[in-house]
Design a protein around this nucleic acid. Structure first.
Length: 924
RNA sequence: GCCCGAAUGGUGGAAUGGUAGACACGAGGGACUUAAAAUCCCUUGGCCAUUGCGGCCAUGUGGGUUCGAUUCCCACUUCGGGUACCA
């Protein structure tokens, strides 16, 4: 029998499917292990060889854990709601569901060819009503909850209503959009609408007037993580700031827990750091400044309370509510013009345009600690969304304030001894404070740290401020003005947003004639006929964002067909949370924050038993493309080989990597590739046309996309799997280069040759030799260690070494070869399964074998090789019997004939013996 | 600007304090073959020596710690990723 992947791979894939080899159920007699891939958005382009990298790694780990005796949950599904399908629908009129289903089918057939051990019975799709019922349901729970800082958890909104009825807003310690102040009587006197509005201030899923990222081109709002550098991540369209009435999730309430939880999970430090920065905790103080000749008090936030004596002006964000309250009539026009001008600018323009701008309000604030009058300005360098939207400016010690002060010629008062602020501000939080004393507070002589603490203490005593922790993390905007998403189970009863009954879930996405906004500017659902409750109330027209469906999908896999609960208690308590999660870093500040938030919320409600969803997380690196170039001599149809291109004036042109092999261009295929190249002439080197190359993103436009289907067809899935792992460390980005694939393919053929020569099966029952066992046990030890640390590339190398050794040893012993197959099974499931049955003669699947353990006895050496070094430089080797003492090693080394040369005329200062490795003799 | 990570042959990479370059690709040479493919064997970081041994230099640059540094520390250079008026 010859190795023929085209025959054995489909055969086993079929058998696994028929025999339900990879389907799992709760089994309390075995420990569970949950391995999850970030589920893909099924794009129209299909998979390229970069996509399966993480899937292969997780598949290897799943199979390994199963062989180790774990009951492994390893599911897959699709993140099926999304913008590309909708935009395609707008262009073509094709229903997004149709394209999505097509894409899913394509993905599935591509995935199937690679031989993954997914339990496909547990497949989920976020656009499936059976699935999104629970997305809608979770939203309803959030609507019905508020967040208590006393219990540090979400609580039913009914508790809050009880509190209002007893005490109004008194002694509340809860998350809210803004601090409200009302009595129990005032609450009771409110009408339904007022009560609804008041409760919105506290709900975890709430409707709020917030500054949103509005993308006019996409016609929708976007969350902060969907925007980068002022443009939308999808499409790259400009985004502007706009005040809109939108559904939001009070993620900010969980900021501290999201931060603390990072300590308990096994993620890389860099990813945790990214999340910490995104959450952006900063400790500081809120302080109130009275406005002269007015009742208004400006509340500001600062982390540098110590610099309060250096405040020479105040600045408001243009959107701040204070602006209208304090602007003097003389300045009114100038301020209004400035605010209007800022509004017109998109966020991107505001970012690119780093010019200092601002306008004086005409008002003055009083510094509460020294009574000084300080002017209040408006400028767009202060953000409305952070802190209180107002700052005290200390130009001597903040570079932004410094630039503003220089531009408008405002005074600068240095507060730290020795700080030179003539050219730039002194921003460092260190030094000894000076120029900082008044009747109320004296900071002179203190360090900055001490001064911050002293000021905080004093302002609390004086009742002019309080210690405050601020977070950068914003609430998530949860409405999208799109069609292809989950509808909100909400209707408007006399203008009051009201939840539907749980029994009405799932609320199905209605049909529409077009996927565009209505003529009156309403979202596409405005086109749905009868988008009303039976009582005739209007149902919410927005849909939920992409992250809604992906925030709790890992829970649904535990119990995917349950129609009575998101996940049953039994399934949740058995599978608990994800033990290993593999996916890209691009979700660090989006999905991985939202999921943690969502899970913590469900945890507060007692619906899930683990506080963190993903115990360990590995980020696989990106596989980049490796593009090839041909060089056309300018204004001709002649192409010059890469080595000679410097002699001509050439234009590099991308050429399809699939017609290039080892950087050598196939001339006939090139001529056939494009009509304009049909008559191409070539200047060759050594009779070949050599292409240039560069590492770029894998994309159609670069002609560097490699389809896994082609690789599987040519070399087989096992070769693809091994090669992707062999390419380099899992977490590192690296270019795909098909050139090296022959090496792993040869390895599989060599493996095959251990079992078969022609049609003869070589496996016999001979007793393994010492050498055989040594090679095998070396491999067991290495591979086990490597899988546990995700060093799959070095394990593949170890397999190659072992197979080479065994073939040199002519080892055909069944006992050795069957264990070799088990070790290799996670990496190359098809060929190992085939040999396991046909050559070794087993009749159960290799998946149910047992992972072998290595035996140190077989690894022991009779003698040990020591490298003898003089002053750290290795000079010769000596063989020592195993277990020799350091003294014996040293004596032998010095007595060795080679030693004399290096000892001549020198004296020995020191001898270091590293057991089993090296002996270093220091001479002078 | 700030934070994080990386830099090793022609190429992908190995070695986390102990003989740098495992393993693989590519390249060169050889065997088998009428020939090719496939397979197998040898060489392959650089320089010097090559009649034999051998010697020197080398992990981005410069310092440091150490008997010994690709590995640890400091500074710099370059590249990649994240983030950005967050007060």
């Amino acid at each position: 029998m010859e190795y023929n992947h085209r025959e054995i791979e489909p055969k086993w894939q079929q058998r696994w499917k028929e025999e339900r080899t990879y389907n799992v159920d709760i089994d309390k007699t075995r420990p569970k292990f949950y391995v999850l891939d970030m589920f893909p958005y099924p794009s129209g382009a299909g998979l390229h060889v970069g996509h399966p990298l993480g899937y292969i790694a997780s598949d290897i780990f799943s199979r390994y854990k199963r062989l180790c005796g774990f009951n492994v949950l390893h599911p897959m599904g699709y993140d099926a709601y999304g913008l590309p399908a909708e935009q395609y629908a707008i262009q073509t009129g094709q229903h997004p569901e149709v394209t999505t289903t097509q894409n899913i089918n394509r993905y599935r057939s591509q995935l199937d060819k690679i031989g993954f051990c997914y339990d496909w019975d547990r497949e989920i799709r976020t656009c499936d009503p059976e699935y999104y019922k629970w997305t809608q349901w979770a939203f309803m729970q959030m609507f019905n909850s508020y967040y208590s800082y006393d219990t540090k958890s979400a609580r039913p909104i009914s508790e809050l209503i009880e509190h209002f009825e007893k005490e109004g807003s008194k002694s509340l310690n809860v998350a809210c959009s803004k601090e409200l102040d009302f009595t129990a009587d005032e609450w009771k006197a409110m009408d339904e609408k007022q009560k609804s509005d008041t409760l919105m201030n506290y709900r975890i899923a709430y409707l709020g007037n917030t500054m949103v990222n509005w993308c006019p081109k996409l016609g929708t709002v976007l969350a902060n993580d969907e925007v980068s550098e002022g443009v939308s991540i999808r499409g790259g369209y400009p985004v502007e700031q706009k005040l809109m009435y939108q559904w939001c999730l009070r993620v900010s309430a969980y900021a501290q827990r999201l931060l603390d939880g990072l300590e308990t999970i096994d993620w890389t430090d860099s990813l945790k750091e990214t999340q910490r920065n995104w959450i952006g905790r900063s400790e500081g103080a809120e302080m109130r400044f009275k406005i002269a000749d007015s009742d208004v008090e400006l509340e500001i936030f600062t982390t540098r309370a110590d610099t309060v004596f250096g405040v020479t002006f105040m600045v408001l964000a243009p959107e701040s509510a204070y602006v209208d309250q304090i602007t003097t009539p003389e300045q009114k026009q100038a301020v209004e013009e400035y605010v209007a001008a800022t509004k017109r600018k998109t966020e991107r323009e505001r970012m690119i345009d780093k010019k200092v701008t601002g306008v004086f309000t005409g008002a003055y604030a009083i510094n509460p600690l020294n009574g000084k009058k300080i002017p209040v300005w408006v400028s767009d360098y202060v953000l409305a969304g952070y802190g209180t939207g107002a700052i005290m400016a200390v130009p001597a010690h903040d570079s932004r304030d410094y630039a503003f002060a220089k531009h408008f010629d405002l005074p600068i008062i240095p507060l730290i001894e020795g700080a030179d602020v003539s050219e730039e501000s002194y921003d460092a939080k260190e030094g000894i404070v000076c120029n900082s004393s008044s009747d109320l507070l004296d900071l002179n002589g203190l360090t900055v740290k001490e001064a911050i603490a002293a000021t905080k203490k004093r302002i609390e005593e004086l009742g002019i401020g309080k210690v405050k922790v601020n977070f950068r993390l914003r609430d998530a905007i949860f409405s999208r003005q799109r069609y292809w998403g989950e509808p909100f189970p909400v209707y408007y009863k006399e203008g009051i947003p009201t939840l539907m009954d749980e029994s009405q879930l799932p609320l199905l996405l209605p049909e529409v004639d077009k996927f565009l906004p209505t003529e009156s500017g309403e979202p596409p659902l405005g086109r749905a006929a009868n988008w009303r409750t039976p009582q005739g109330y209007q149902i919410e027209l927005n849909t939920m964002p992409g992250f809604a469906g992906s925030s709790a999908y890992y829970l649904r896999y535990m119990d995917p067909r349950n129609n009575d609960a998101l996940v049953s208690k039994e399934a949740d308590e058995y599978w608990r949370n994800v033990d290993l999660y593999i996916g890209g870093t691009e979700h660090a500040t989006g999905h991985l924050i939202y999921s943690r938030f969502w899970n913590k919320f469900l945890y507060d409600l007692g619906l899930v038993c683990e506080d963190e969803p993903f115990r360990k997380l590995i980020n696989q690196g990106m596989i980049q493309g490796r593009s090839n170039f041909v060089y056309r001599i300018k204004d001709t149809n002649t192409f010059v080989s890469a080595g000679l291109k410097d002699q001509y004036d050439v234009t590099p042109i991308h050429v399809d990597v699939n017609i290039v092999s080892n950087d050598v261009l196939d001339l006939d295929k090139f001529r056939a590739w494009r009509p304009e190249f049909r008559d191409a002439e070539f200047i060759l080197e050594d009779g070949k046309y050599v292409c240039g190359w560069a590492v770029e993103k894998m994309s159609k436009s670069m002609f560097n996309v490699v389809n896994p289907d082609d690789i599987v067809d040519r070399y087989g899935a096992d070769t693809l799997r091994l090669y992707e792992m062999f390419l380099g460390p899992l977490e590192q980005s690296k270019p795909w280069d098909t050139n090296g694939i022959d090496g792993v393919n040869r390895f599989i053929k060599k493996l095959w040759a251990l079992f078969y020569k022609g049609d003869t099966c070589l496996v016999d029952d001979s007793e393994p030799t010492k050498e055989n066992l040594k090679s095998l046990h070396k491999l067991i030890k290495k591979v086990t260690g490597d899988i546990e640390t995700f060093s799959f590339n070095t394990s593949v190398a170890a397999f190659m070494i072992c197979v080479n050794e065994l073939s040199q040893q002519k080892c055909h012993s069944r006992l050795v070869l069957e264990q070799l197959l088990v070790l290799l099974a996670p990496f190359a499931p098809h060929v190992t399964e085939e040999l396991w049955h046909s050559a070794v003669g087993k009749d159960t699947t290799i998946c149910d074998a047992q992972w072998p353990k290595h035996n140190e006895d077989y690894l022991k050496e009779d003698s040990v090789n020591y490298a003898v070094s003089f002053n750290g430089k290795a000079r010769f080797n000596i063989q020592m019997p195993a277990g020799s003492t350091n003294e014996e090693v040293e004596r032998t080394a010095l007595a060795h004939e080679g030693a004399a040369k290096w000892l001549e005329g020198k004296t020995i200062t020191k001898v270091i013996v590293v057991p089993n490795k090296i002996i270093n003799i220091v001479v002078k």
